[in-house]
Design a protein around this nucleic acid. Sequence first.
RNA 1: GCGGGCGUGGCGGAAUUGGCAGACGCGCCGGACUCAAAAUCCGGUUCUGGUGACAGAGUGUCGGUUCGACCCCGACCGCCCGCACCA
Length: 855
Amino acid sequence: MARYDPSTVEPKWRTAWAEAGVDVTRPDPDRPTYYALEMFPYPSGRLHVGHARNYAMGDVNARYQRARGRNLLHPMGWDAFGLPAENAAAERGVDPRAWTLGNIEVMRAELQRLGLAIDWTREFATCDPEYYGLQQAWFLKLWRRGLAYRKEGLVNWDPVDMTVLANEQVIDGRGWRSDAPVERKKLTQWFLRITAYADELLDGLETLDHWPEKVKLMQANWIGRSAGLTLRFDFAGGAPAESGPALAVYTTRPDTLYGASFVAVAPDHPLAEALAERDPAVADFVRRARRGGTSEAEIESAEKLGFDTGIEVIHPFDPTWRLPVWIANFVLMDYGTGAIFGCPAHDQRDLEFARKYGLPVTPVVLPAGQDPASFAIADEAWTGPGRIYNSKFMDGLDIEAAKAAAIQRAEAANQGEGAIVYRLRDWGVSRQRGWGCPIPIIHCPACGIVGVPEEELPVRLPESLDFSRPGNPLARDEAWKAVACPRCGAAAERETDTLDTFVDSSWYFARFPDPRAPEPIGAEAARWLPVDQYIGGIEHAVLHLLYARFVVRALRDEGMLTVDEPFAGLFTQGMVTHETYRRQNGEWVEPGQVRMVQEGSSRRALDAATGEPLIIGDPEKMSKSKRNVVAPADIADRYGVDATRLFVLSDSPPDRDVQWTTAGVEGAWRLVNRIWREFDAPAAPVPSKDGAEQALALRRLTHRTIKQVSEAMDGFRFNSAIARIYEIVSALHALGPGEETERARAEALSVLARLIAPFAPHLAEECWRRIGGEGFVALAPWPAFDPSLAEDDEKVLPVQIDGKRRGEVRAPAGASEEAVRQLVLSDPEIARRLEGVTIRRLIVVRDRIVNLVTG
RNA sequence: GCGGGCGUGGCGGAAUUGGCAGACGCGCCGGACUCAAAAUCCGGUUCUGGUGACAGAGUGUCGGUUCGACCCCGACCGCCCGCACCA
């Protein structure tokens, strides 16, 4: 009996699969397609355990679906543009392209070592000129249709990464990569008009039945549709001429218009800017109001600041009513119209502002049970339900009816229109970076903005990029920039901004079906899209996953795609965490340098070299700074790839975090060996005297296991699937010898090899070969179960008396209520307990339970 | 503040139509094998009382619905996540 040696078995099978082309996808009209995809990695250098779990999970599902008869597409590529390459270039003087391609080599080998059923013939990287050239081609199409445009505006500036960020990339007022506080800057930038699809992106969420509710909710909130009224307040005097005759205000509470006490505009509002130009006091206020940060703490503590412009507007429903116009720091220019009307009684922010500046507070919504004569607002605005009062034509209406009435009145008087407003803003895609996809645009002094002609694509990056100085190397590469205008031939300049790398990842999945097609998305895409199952981290809930949904729609409207949604199914996997260890002085210590000591039921951590006691911290996401990173390659060296795969999937449900522990991997390693022993030299510790009975029991377990594992696989409950595998392995181990048992054993082993194949493909192949299985188990069909064996033909029914378990009876499966009743009442143990009590009810739940209710 | 999720043994977690709570793994305890250790194997392991058969309690807390609740309803407590001066 040979000990299972992954270091020889695993490479052997990977070579065999590669030589046979097992994982290469070929067209097969007889089988339904299945497109399995995991979010492609950024080639940072080495594979992380988090990657290993993500790809193992995707691979388990992909292999399972293939075994179930689907024609599988399971490709891999590289999200290869991005800042780490530039940072490496700046710090170590390496070429970002060489650095990236080198990392890809290393990581491809690491991924391949995981034994993933991936069709590597389709691989590409987003930094391949072929790929980004095609991206430039569709960018130009979008530009011609007005879906890509340039505008000047306030943008999020990351002072550390020295680039602009999209709103989705600002987390808590900080850059998503650099964690530096984001500044506001006025720049001319490229945008993609995602807002044109706001409605469709929101409504489309309802069609995504196989997406987590959480992600759909996050996207819905991010899009943030609200219905209200855009209302014009005519100026009564004092407004600059260029501001026009009226000020537009957006509100979702037109029912409270009679509670208005002021109008306020954002510091960036054109009116405020016009006033600032002629009045230094206004200019000074605007400067102060803009200074406030955007982080949580700053907003919470931010004081309401206002400046009374002296301008007055006329209330749209009452020509005699004048309202003052203020500039206020809490009004946002990029939501609605950048101007509000303040109703302090029913809006907390307006109330704080009114109290500070002595503006009137008039309630117009009366909560139920309040007396209109005495109801007053103190420190808290009333935002709940009630009846409208103090409001002329709306008096007596509820809030919803009053909103409708106000909108109707405003529209009839040509004072405004009902309007839908979104929180979502257009996607700023300009990045002042050198290692990215160049925006294929030429700036001509005569012709203005000119697109690069399609036949000149791709606009390639220069051969070498100089990152020795901060800032965008393209912007100072005069030779690269200089170009003749394609329209008039005059000397012109290339656009030096590159596209946000989230553009690169917003369509790569549509390229894999036809990865060498001359057009961006080849004809094969129609056969495979949408992706059946997409797997990745929750952190992309409103980034990548929203951008991809938008780009697919934009390309569809270009006639390049036929689907509305990129990903029919989505699964967000949890992180891999690890305990942290630190010295008394606070220094972090790597797990490899820690020796764990068990004392009874408590654990202590010691420095392996010095014996110094260490502080054990909570499990956290693996990070270099906390030094709690474990490299999957190191684990695979010790325990093999299959044990590594089994462990990352066995300990927690896939959508939850899993804590990496050495004990856990060792458990998976034990399982690998236990399985192998059953195939290699089945133990027979129990003398078999009841062979037929044992054989039947094993057959029942085998078929029940197929059923349960299949159900668990379908529901992505891989941890439960592995638990069922443990059970059948234990049963095999306890099986005695004999003719009948050996037949049952052969069946169980054949099933077991196929059930473990998605999780531990190398071990499964070796086992399959050992029992003389035909071909590769990787291509073997998933076992089917016999329903008559998967269900027991005799059930043990617990018998409860008044809800407490007091015994059990054995009844044939499906036994009638009457039959079970007879069994229960004739059971001596139950009868003994029922002496002297009356049975009020006897409830029989078929095949489940019996409950006796006594009086 | 708004929205959402989650609270089950020492630990990770099962219990996917309201029907035996704690599957499976880890850890721990005891035993076998061994000169010894590792590995492996066998048994035990929710808590309390009892040598034991057994009895009682038990899924964050309190209450409700039900013959029956980890599961449904209400209130509360705690933790996690997303958004956030969005009019």
